[in-house]
Amino acid sequence: MNATPGAAPDAGSDPAPGLAPDPGPDPAPGPAPDPALSPTSGPAPGSVRDGVPGDPVAALVGRQIRQALRTVGAVAALLAGPPVLAMWVPDPRAWVVLSLVVQGVWVGLAVLQLRRAERMER
């Protein structure tokens, strides 16, 4: 139960300044927050059902918010990154292509977030 209140204020205030040019202090601002997650998402889903000491709801909430913040951090980086990088690329074709590529990346990111969130709830 104690893990949540500590983590959540960051949860709230992070995404806001995180979208400014520097992507913020999130754990994985890059587009591939893969390796850190797979071990944490797997373990003991049964604990939610069994009601083991240490409040399973808070544990699940903690895992979910960490995953959600990774995704939001990636969104912040990908949202602010391309417009900033484009400053040094005067070719307009690159701007158009980049803006379309980012749209594709959102779909990929959404699928990734969906899979991870569902795996934690299994």
């Binding site: 995404p15 959600a68 939001v72 969104v75 391309p82 980012v102 749209q103 959102w106 959404a110 977030q113």
Partner: peptide, 15 residues
């Protein structure tokens, strides 16, 4: 960049 921002909102909602 405006359309990319508009679509990004749905990733944030999902997360």
């Amino acid at each position: 960049w405006y359309p990319t921002g508009a679509a990004a909102g749905f990733v944030v909602i999902l997360a």
